Amino acid sequence: MNRFSKYVFGALLATPMLASAAVDLVTNGSFEADPQSSGSWNIYSSLTGWNGSPNIELRNNVAGTAYDGSNFVELDTYSNSSMSQLLTGASGLYELSFWYSARPGTGTTNDLSFSFDGIASGTVLNGIGNSGSDHSWQHFSQIVNFDGNGLLTFSAVGISDSYGGSLDMVSFTSAVPEPETYAMLLAGLGLLGFMARSRKESVA
């Protein structure tokens, strides 16, 4: 490796990648922080990071398997209708992401709604059943302009029949790199251009 190649390699190492790890503002998004024995379920007034209204049903690979890890949440209007978490962090563009599924072996009674401070809202599983023996996980994703503080809420809006919609792997991550990342990337590219020009002039 010649001296120029070594400089290029060093500059590339010093330049951060744009796909650096994003910060997730959701606490316990996959619901693994709360112990639940395998093949069991229970109803709680709250989970780590989440408040129930009135309760949250936590399941560990029973009546379906989790999308991520072992635990997932099921919400039904029967007794555990909604859950929420206050998110705080730096303002900017963020991606709201979660996975959802109708409960296995049920009809169209599993609707779930979500809202985030009026910035994002909607209903998933609207009139969707699941005749299979396991979850059929679907992904939701939306970019929102976050002002630094917001309440994320999931609610059951289906029929009160004790069978609800399932939720797993909730995240709220920064969607763009920090300005400092762009600045360092441009500096690294500028250094590469300068070295390439210097090498060309020395050869000439």
Rank of each mutant, 00 (worst) to 15 (best):
A183C: 03
Y78I: 03
L93N: 10
D134H: 03
L189R: 08
S113D: 09
L93M: 12
N80S: 14
T153C: 04
L192N: 01
A187D: 08
E74H: 01
L96E: 01
T109Q: 10
G150Y: 00
Q142H: 03
L189T: 09
K200N: 12
E74T: 09
Y182V: 10
E180K: 06
D111K: 14
G150V: 00
I128R: 05
S133T: 14
F194M: 14
S160A: 15
P104K: 06
D168E: 09
G150I: 00
L189W: 11
N126S: 15
P179M: 02
T88G: 10
A102Q: 01
G158K: 04
Q138V: 11
S202K: 15
E74S: 09
P104C: 12
H135D: 11
L96C: 06
D134I: 03
N80T: 12
A183W: 02
F140P: 01
G92Q: 06
N130L: 05
W137E: 07
V144G: 00
E180Q: 10
S171A: 08
L167R: 07
S155V: 05
F114P: 05
A204S: 12
A156H: 10
V73W: 11
L191F: 14
S162W: 13
G89W: 05
L87H: 02
A183D: 11
D147A: 11
T181E: 03
A102K: 03
V170H: 07
N126E: 14
A204G: 13
S81K: 15
A120E: 13
L167Y: 06
L167F: 04
H135Y: 04
V124H: 10
I119W: 00
E74I: 12
L112S: 03
A90N: 12
G105L: 04
S115K: 06
T173E: 15
G118C: 04
